[in-house]
Amino acid sequence: MKLALRDISVRFGGFKAVDGISLAIEPGTLVGIIGPNGAGKSTLFSMVTGFLPHGEGVVSLGEADISRDTPFGRARRGMVRTFQVPREFAHLTVRENLMAAAPGQSGENLIDLFFRPGKVRNEEDAIRREVEETIDFLKLRAVADVSAGRLSGGQKKLLELGRVLMTKPKLILLDEPFAGVNPVLIEELSGHIRALNQRGIGFVIIEHDLSALSRLVSVLHVMDQGKLLASGAPAEVLARKDVREAYLGGAA
């Protein structure tokens, strides 16, 4: 599913956090977004996923204009995000966290819950099987029944990826998945991302760890002061002088 952004701007008062960004994310690709702090990367994610009120411009997913869709509507269309600081349903167990995110639960409707218990039970069984697969895939078996709030930072990152997977996404937006993560887990997460991409899931990744990111993605977009500065293959983009100046403060 292609994500297309046309002339996206987000203002906070007089400040333009995102200033006329247009870009297209082709289906099933691995794309990176880099830029100095405050470049507007996370704000862009927030607006695209409906987390912030819509600013200006058009967000379309596949054929549909989703600019005015609710956040959960966009998630149900197959586009989900994670957060810089991982978030979780702290008082639910890891297993419940994953189950809560599964789509198509007629058990959230009281009539079906009480009058069609068979249907609800079959769905629950299907969701449970999927959750067990996800738990195995992410190697979270040991903490499956632990309250998510008690997980380590790294485990929360894995859970976050798992919760996103449970929504059956076609496009995942990861906000700094490697921040505060040890090198071993970065490799593990990268492996998961590649494996999921093989299954056809597209990724857009905001990340400051340029070496890990450029090994992962095929396209890199650079943002600076709310604008798109450069786009292209990672090696090319990172070699550009203006990019190095914006991103590395001209030090190189």
């Binding site: 609710t70 959960f72 998630a75 989900v80 979780e88 349903f89 702290a90 639910l92 809560a100």
Partner: peptide
């Protein structure tokens, strides 16, 4: 389960579909 999820983090619940 979803009610408890919303109680924990309503914004996260919305973006989780």
């Amino acid at each position: 389960r979803r009610m408890r999820a919303v109680a924990d983090d309503p914004a996260l619940a919305r973006v989780s579909g």
